Amino acid sequence: MPRKQAEASNAQPDFETAMTELETLVQRMEGGELSLEDSLKEFERGVKLTRLCQEALKVAEQRVKLLSADGQESDFPQQGDA
């Protein structure tokens, strides 16, 4: 396998791609037509995707905190609250 293809296969999906894949996994598993072995593989993939999404959200939250004026957690004003 060429190096770029190997690197691409090891690359993690971005948040949106992971969420879309998770939704697809859930639908397939809820369909009830997977074998036990396939269900376990899909579940394992789902756990990995969930962890990836949780980490992406954690990083995004940290970035928002850094970008806020005082670094304190606070509710962002809603439209019309100014």
Rank of each mutant, 00 (worst) to 15 (best):
A69V: 07
T24S: 14
V26F: 01
Q78I: 04
A6K: 14
L66C: 06
P2G: 15
R63M: 07
Q27R: 11
L57G: 06
S39Q: 04
S74C: 10
L52S: 02
F15G: 08
A56P: 04
Q27E: 12
D70V: 05
E30K: 13
K58S: 08
Q5A: 15
K58G: 05
T20Q: 13
L22M: 08
E16L: 10
P77Y: 01
L66M: 10
Q78K: 15
E42H: 00
E7T: 06
L66Y: 05
L22K: 10
S39K: 02
A18Y: 01
E7P: 02
D70P: 08
E7S: 09
L57Y: 13
F15L: 11
E30V: 04
G31Q: 05
A8M: 11
K58L: 08
A69R: 12
E16N: 13
P77M: 00
T24A: 15
S9T: 12
E21I: 03
L49C: 01
V47E: 05
D75V: 05
V26C: 05
G31S: 09
A69L: 10
C53L: 02
M19Y: 00
S9M: 12
Q27C: 06
A60G: 02
G46H: 01
F15T: 11
E44F: 01
F43I: 08
E73G: 09
L40C: 02
L40I: 09
R51Y: 09
Q62H: 14
E55R: 12
L52H: 05
T17Y: 01
S68R: 13
E55P: 07
A6D: 09
S68F: 01
L67I: 07
P2T: 15
V59I: 08
P13D: 11
T17S: 09
